[in-house]
Amino acid sequence: MMEPTIKAVFDSCQPNTQETLLTIRQWIFDIANTSESIGTIDECLKWGEPSYLTHTPKSGTSLRLSPLKFNPQKYGLFVHCQTRLIEEFRLVYPDLDYDKNRGILFDSHDPIDEELIKQFIFAALTYQLRKKR
Rank of each mutant, 00 (worst) to 15 (best):
P15F: 03
Y93H: 14
T20R: 13
L21V: 04
I86P: 07
Y127I: 08
F89V: 01
Y98G: 06
K74V: 02
K46P: 14
T5S: 07
Q14N: 12
T61S: 09
R102V: 01
L63Q: 02
R25S: 09
I104V: 15
P50H: 13
N33A: 11
P67W: 03
L65M: 03
F106M: 00
N16F: 07
C81T: 03
L91N: 14
K58N: 07
L21M: 07
P72T: 12
V79Q: 00
A124F: 02
S37K: 11
L125R: 03
E19R: 08
P94F: 03
L116I: 12
F120Y: 15
L45I: 07
P67M: 13
D95K: 05
L21T: 05
G48I: 09
A32P: 08
L21A: 10
P72W: 00
Y75V: 11
L85P: 02
L125E: 08
S12I: 12
R25L: 04
I28Y: 02
L65W: 10
Y127C: 08
A124H: 03
W27D: 02
P50S: 02
L105T: 13
S66C: 15
Q26S: 13
R64Y: 05
T34R: 06
K46T: 13
K131R: 06
K46V: 06
D42P: 05
W47N: 14
T20P: 01
P67S: 01
D110Y: 06
E43Q: 13
E114Q: 11
S51N: 03
R64H: 04
E88V: 00
L125K: 03
R130K: 10
Y52N: 12
Q18I: 09
F120R: 10
E115I: 11
H55Q: 14
K69I: 04
G76P: 03
F120G: 06
I121Q: 08
P111Y: 02
G60V: 05
F89W: 04
T5K: 05
L65H: 05
P57M: 10
Y93M: 08
E49H: 13
L96W: 10
A8S: 14
V92W: 01
R84K: 14
F106C: 04
T40N: 09
L53V: 14
T126E: 03
F122R: 11
P4I: 05
E88D: 12
S51T: 15
R64I: 02
N101M: 07
R133C: 10
V79E: 01
M2Y: 02
D99H: 10
D11R: 08
F120P: 00
Q73P: 07
E3R: 05
Q18C: 15
K100P: 14
A123T: 15
S35Y: 10
T61W: 00
Y127F: 14
R133P: 07
Q119T: 15
S51K: 02
K69Q: 15
W27L: 07
T54V: 06
E114V: 09
S35R: 08
A123F: 07
T61C: 11
S35P: 08
I104S: 12
S108M: 01
E114M: 09
E88N: 09
F70D: 15
K131N: 13
R102H: 14
Y75E: 02
M1F: 12
K7L: 11
D110K: 01
T126C: 12
K118E: 02
K74C: 12
S62M: 05
K118A: 12
T54R: 04
T23R: 02
L53I: 11
